[in-house]
């Protein structure tokens, strides 16, 4: 599994290196891009590739969360472990920490490699790389926490499918909300806001995009894209209140997972 993940990431990095190298010489209406336009395009494409990396991390850990709890219950591995003098909440916390470390490690190493690719090919370095990677890691942690909760209730595959389905739905709801904002329709715009509260993956992703895109180029040239609800640019960063909600959300789901796991008959 680790080899497959590594191969997939390397393929993504190699493809993006090829794409970014082509971007450096691109012409638009017969003339080369200005440096500002180039930075705007680099921001958008970097966000697109980082979305891919975030997606691999989030889906990977969500599908790992299922087997680690529900899979071990089904196979019987959990029986011998949980008959030892250990608390189920401690086992769950250990698995959560392991998955967070794995997901975050992947996002940080693959993300840094991608930043280096972009810097080498088009000379662009994101303004807030640490914040961007931290928010992507947080997105991974949020989805795997949901996956872990589901894994205490349903089968391994079902928990992964439901977590990934909700992840995709929230992202689409975010895009729909952006379109609502572009058309000035408050009701449609609220779809994105509500979904970002219910499952904070899309909110964190938008915060990560904001940290990775060039603010000057976006302000100068990205107006129409932002107003049009383009899904790979973010008009604003995250508030501390929202980050606080994310922490509370993760704690709530982890607590709920502890209770359901404790009550689960093996």
């Amino acid at each position: 599994m680790l080899r497959a993940l590594g191969a997939l990431t390397l393929a993504l990095l190699a493809l993006s290196a090829w794409g970014f190298s082509k971007l450096a010489g691109i012409e638009f209406e017969g003339s080369a891009l200005t440096s500002g336009e180039e930075r705007l395009v680099a921001s958008q494409v970097l966000n697109l590739v980082m979305f891919g990396i975030g997606l691999i991390a989030a889906l990977g850990t969500a599908f790992l969360a299922g087997p680690t709890i529900a899979g071990e219950i089904e196979s019987g591995t959990a029986l011998a472990i949980l008959a030892r003098p250990v608390r189920r909440s401690a086992v769950l916390a250990g698995k959560w920490l392991g998955l967070v470390a794995f997901g975050s490690g992947f996002v940080i190493s693959a993300g840094l490699a991608q930043f280096l690719v972009v810097r080498t090919t088009v000379g662009y370095w994101p303004p807030e790389p640490v914040e961007g990677l931290a928010l992507l890691a947080a997105q991974t942690a949020v989805l795997l926490t949901l996956g872990l909760l589901l894994a205490t209730l349903i089968s391994p595959m079902a928990s992964g499918v439901v977590a990934v389905g909700l992840f995709g739905s929230t992202w689409i709801a975010g895009v729909v909300g952006g379109i609502g904002q572009a058309f000035g329709n408050e009701g449609v715009a609220r779809v994105g806001t509500v979904s970002r509260m219910l499952l904070p993956t899309d909110g964190l992703w938008r915060g990560a995009m904001h940290a990775l895109q060039d603010p000057i180029a976006v302000a100068q040239f990205g107006g129409p894209a932002l107003e049009g609800g383009f899904p790979f640019l973010s008009p604003s960063g995250l508030t501390f209140t929202y980050l606080g909600w994310v922490v509370v959300w993760v704690a709530l789901l982890l607590g709920l997972a502890s209770v359901t796991f404790l009550r689960r008959d093996l």
């Binding site: 196979s75 019987g76 591995t77 029986l79 011998a80 008959a83 030892r84 003098p85």
Partner: peptide, 13 residues
């Protein structure tokens, strides 16, 4: 369960 050993019917390690 500190000094209890257990072999489950469904054994898997």
């Amino acid at each position: 369960r500190a000094r209890v050993g257990y072999l489950p019917e469904l054994f898997r390690y």
